[in-house]
Design a binder for these strands. Structure first.
Lengths: 150, 150
DNA sequence: AGAGATAGTTAAACTGTTTAACAATTAATG
DNA sequence: CATTAATTGTTAAACAGTTTAACTATCTCT
């Protein structure tokens, strides 16, 4: 592969990944409305899917410090979406779950997000989108390997 | 396309785009060092490429309000990377350019970022990466159309 | 029993963001 | 020409998310 080709691919990748991330964020923020932010949505999504988890787990999963999680959970808790339950066996641990209100709210926004993602996916042939996501997932694996090597 | 297939693609897309964005951000932040943030890097990159531009232009390009640009530019200015020049014809306008120090600094980090992107790209066949970026750019266009329709 | 590890919180500081108000300047209109 | 509009950029206040460092409470391990 020539040096120019590589450089061109690198530049295209940096440009397009930045642009798409930016636009998706702004369009998804519209779907979410003013009640909740992007980051809060991802936290809600995670807890909804696993049912219950701890701050430590969230911090690992989202690759941020625990105090960052505390801040987000506090905001979700103030909105009435999150329940905190102390583990009676190990009283240091706090389990985080969605309240009923939190579940209902999440399901509502999940549907909106799904519609939005489906909308832009429908502009592609299924095979092209499958190939795209396959490579995207492979890229994710590559990045995990790079991180591990450090 | 069956409903399950679509839903599976949607879920995979949301998961992988979130994960990759997160990992790239954290790995790129490492390359950038403590001197500069991700957003500051993208602003620097933009000005480096166009040579000179205004706050209004940056605000449009990055899809944020002008006051957000002022904040970032102030930080880059404090570091000595940015020069502000008033237009003598239209004295409302301020042209932003890189100082010599800013150019040298940008070139240094650009090389690091290039190495990093090249590193993970080298794990793919060229044809696969080209196909991936093609679809990625198509996705960018689709998102632009969706935004315009609103 | 005491030392060290772990889970979570709090407080301070910083970056990036929006909204709203503002100053300076230019453009448009009667 | 004078006044009103619009535009450019800044400032200030408020908020979300982040890190670092200190702290409390609890558990683990000799």
């Amino acid at each position: 592969m020539s040096k120019e080709t590589i450089q061109s691919l690198i530049d295209r990748y940096i440009d397009v990944s930045f642009s798409v991330t930016k636009k998706e964020e702004s369009l998804m923020t519209e779907q979410l409305g003013s009640e909740i932010t992007q980051d809060q949505h991802y936290i809600l999504r995670y807890i909804y899917r696993v049912g219950s988890c701890t701050s430590t787990k969230l911090a690992e999963e989202f690759e941020v410090k625990k105090s960052a999680i505390t801040a987000i959970i506090n905001r979700l808790w103030e909105k009435g979406f999150i329940k905190r339950t102390r583990d009676e066996m190990d009283r240091r641990v706090v389990y985080l779950t969605l309240t009923e209100q939190g579940e209902i709210f999440y399901q509502k926004i999940e549907e909106k997000i799904n519609c939005f993602v489906e909308l832009f996916m429908s502009k592609f042939e299924q095979s092209e989108m499958e190939q795209f996501i396959d490579t995207y997932e492979k890229l994710n694996q590559v990045l995990i390997e790079i991180k591990d090597k450090q």
